[in-house]
Amino acid sequence: MAMNARRPGRSRLTILVMVLASITIVTLDAKDVPVLRSLRSTALDVLSPIGSAFQSVTGPLRNAWRGVTDYGDLEAENRRLRERLDELRGRSEASAELAVENRKLRDQLALKTETPIPTIVGRVATGNFTSFDDNTAIVDRGSDDGVKVGNPVVTKGGLVGRVQRVSATRAVVQLVTDPDLVLGIKVKSNDIGTGRGTGAGKPFLVDSGIDLTDEVAKGDLITTAGTQDSQMPGGIPIGTVTKIARNQADLVQVLEVRLAADLTRLDFVQILNWVPPS
């Protein structure tokens, strides 16, 4: 043990310099200094592939580990998925009929379908490096692939989040569970409100805009509103209403929404080549 307590004056000075250096970095980052931004992007480009490489090597071990540590969660999820499957089987027949009817009506009215947004398929590159990053995911596509800050990210299930930062080969996605990501939403009755995440593994919450008189029921689909200045294009499924509470003080209904996309096991995602209007 070589306790370095022989030069207390120098020791104090070194500690002070390190503290000041940290504060300087925090301050410069708050001002979005380009050097730090590019340093961060480079770190993401250099280090994230290491995570991806280990991910493929440690795959079987990881699965075994998760089987042990997440056994209770997996059991509950299995039960929930079986219930959901039954529910969806019932719905699919009704949906098929509605789709046929919709097509006929569109043909009658000569309506054009909405222009599809080009997508970039990506894959979650690595798990989160720290425990405080559970509202972000890193995807193996970056600016070299055409990804831009603000692009929505979806799966077949529904909305995953939006691109928050981009490096040449990686994109950091702010997940829909992040309380800081406030989204315009639309309910079945076409009423528009706003909602936000409440943290990883927690429901999405619609807490403004849906008046007490607006028609909402459990099981209703919530989609992105896509209004002017919205962060997302319209019509992307966010989830289904699981709980409705009446906030008499603000005269609104507060909706708890179960997310349509399974964020606990994200793998392949689609990045929509769409940016919010500036």
């Binding site: 500690i15 390190m18 503290v19 250096a21 940290s22 504060i23 300087t24 970095i25 925090v26 301050t27 410069l28 980052d29 708050a30 730090l36 340093l39 961060r40 770190a43 993401l44 280090l47 989160n128 490096f129 720290t130 405080f132 990053d133 509202n135 972000t136 995911a137 890193i138 928050q164 930062r165 950091v172 702010q174």
Partner: peptide
Amino acid sequence: GFLLDLLRGSGALGLSALAYT
């Protein structure tokens, strides 16, 4: 701390550096 800050997907740079220092 600084290296960990660089890795983090979000958040201010330098916070871990200060805390760990």
